[in-house]
Nucleic acid binder design. Structure first.
Lengths: 217, 217
DNA sequence: CCAGCGTATCAACACAGTGTCGAGAAAGCC
DNA sequence: GGCTTTCTCGACACTGTGTTGATACGCTGG
């Protein structure tokens, strides 16, 4: 499954020493961040805002987190972990019921990221300026692509899918499509797919790209 | 074709009064911006840097442009216009030679945006924080999607493509895929498609999504 | 040939935000 | 009750943005 990326190897993105009661403050900061992100974009939120929201002064904020970015990264980390857990079931089902299994697999991400839009959008915004955010997200994408490649190869091996593009290339483009389409929809971009159409559209394209034969001249 | 979006209705994004010799300075600023963007990301460049690069002081910069963002927007505007011009030919060819025509159409964007990566990447970065950049890019996407929808519908009407997803939904997801895949490749993201594979992969998925029949159970 | 007006320039300022330092309060614990 | 560790914040230093007001520059018409 997805693997590494997470808090595992870098345990304390948050406060300097993970102990005692300041715990509560840390949670207050994270909660404030998520709340404020629901109202405005990341760049509109200052460290001052986060501190005030958590009932502390700005310097005290820095006792708990090294920067605003670190707060968001923590939030994203957790969300990503949540998403990784959910996704396994759909993939398992894929061999018997391709379309339904695929839909289930895609739905897992859709739901986790969709239910915490504020964090999802902040993650995307952060990626533009923060290398750690880029690395974190790269890892997520890599996990998805690896899974999708494996599925495509398995389906080809058992004769359910015809040969075609290298599995990894195909998986890469499809995962990228998913990411972008989700983002556009969640961000309310115009144009974008309607929220209740998103999965249908993506699943259909995946099915054709994986199971469809090479097209006519 | 693509339509509006461009400098047409908002003629002077640049200096306050479009006259005389300060013209040279304006060009110097734009050139400096493009040069510096080749070295580092937008957020690493300050107005000071742009001014210095153009041989003027920071306040003087503000005589020519209202902000750093406006400079980049001007650069992007021009690139977008360039891209719009190129694309027509491929679409025309599409009816006789679907695969070749499609490839040609996609290639047009690939080449324009690929040949000015610095600006392309800056545009993407800007979108994260700047509403005008988002609007500009939305317009570009909208144009592409409209064109792609029209093509899909035409191909279905003449019986070359089977029915399937609503043309606009399909077009939206495919264009989003293209955008994201191009960006990842140009930005050197990991994972991403290799530059010399990008078009082949995208064209193949487009072909299957448009011309392939609905997939098996 | 110089008065006068737009064009162009910049030093100095006001502001908003980040991150740090060092002095101190409060909370454990021996 | 002293010592240590955790926690807190006022005050500071710094970076970057955008504005203001004074001034110089160059042309054009009287």
């Amino acid at each position: 499954m997805n693997a590494s990326v997470s808090t595992a190897e870098a345990p304390a993105r948050g406060r300097r020493t993970p102990r005692a009661s300041g715990d509560e403050r840390e949670r207050a900061i994270l909660a404030t961040a998520e709340r404020l992100l629901g109202q405005g974009s990341l760049s509109e939120i200052s460290v001052e805002d986060l501190a005030k929201g958590a009932g502390i002064s700005r310097p005290t904020f820095y006792f708990y987190f090294p920067s605003k970015d670190a707060v968001v990264l923590t939030l994203v980390d957790r969300m990503v972990e949540e998403a990784a857990v959910n996704r396994a079931s759909g993939i398992a089902k894929l061999a018997e019921e391709p379309r339904a299994g695929l839909r289930l697999a895609l739905q897992a991400s859709f739901e986790v990221f969709g239910s915490r839009r504020a964090v999802t959008l902040a993650a995307a915004e952060l990626r533009a300026t923060n290398a750690e955010a880029r690395a974190l997200w790269s890892g997520v994408m890599e996990g998805w692509i690896a899974d999708a490649s494996a599925v495509i190869e398995a389906e080809r091996a058992r004769g359910a899918a015809p040969p075609g593009l290298p599995a990894r290339d195909l998986a890469t483009a499809l995962i990228q499509m998913n990411e972008r389409a989700h983002y556009a929809t969640f961000a309310g971009e115009q144009p974008a797919l309607a929220e209740d159409r998103l999965l249908d559209v993506l699943v259909d394209i995946w099915m054709r790209a994986i199971y469809g034969a090479d097209a006519p001249a």
